[in-house]
């Protein structure tokens, strides 16, 4: 354990505090319904664009091999197209990647 305990807690306060406040302040402060259609449209799109930017292309490189990630994510897309739930998609994708990695290991 290279890090001092005191320093850990300072970091923790910064991390947890900033993350909490960035959630809570807009949640508490915005009381009116937003009328502006541009802002409404922006708020509609933002969660999906965030998730996409986090997923692509980073997710291609989190498994052992590019090919297993590609096959896994294609499986995820296919299941999601069939409106399967979050957990089922996550579990099946992990299993698909595991199988791919095992096949690559054997070959």
């Amino acid at each position: 354990m290279s890090m001092q305990i005191k320093e850990f807690f300072i970091y923790l306060i910064i991390m947890a505090g900033s993350t909490y406040l960035i959630r809570a302040i807009p949640f508490v402060v915005i009381k009116e319904k937003i009328k502006n259609n541009f802002i409404k449209s922006f708020l509609y799109y933002i969660p999906y664009t965030v998730l996409m930017a986090m997923t692509f292309p980073a997710a291609l490189y989190v498994t052992g091999h590019l090919i297993s990630a590609v096959i896994g994510l294609l499986a995820a897309c296919l299941l999601a197209l069939k409106n399967k739930g979050l957990t089922l998609v996550a579990v099946v994708t992990s299993v698909v990647v595991l199988v791919c990695e095992l096949i690559i290991m054997v070959l």
């Binding site: 999906y48 989190v62 896994g72 994510l73 979050l86 994708t93 299993v95």
Partner: peptide
């Protein structure tokens, strides 16, 4: 490690499961 690799994709699969159904309904999104 091989199991860990498989688990690492789970969070991204969950993101896909959130994005894709919305896109399916709306080409603009």
């Amino acid at each position: 490690e091989i199991i860990m690799n498989a688990l690492c994709i789970a969070i991204y699969a969950m993101f896909v499961a959130i994005i894709v159904p919305v896109c399916k309904k709306d080409w603009k999104t």
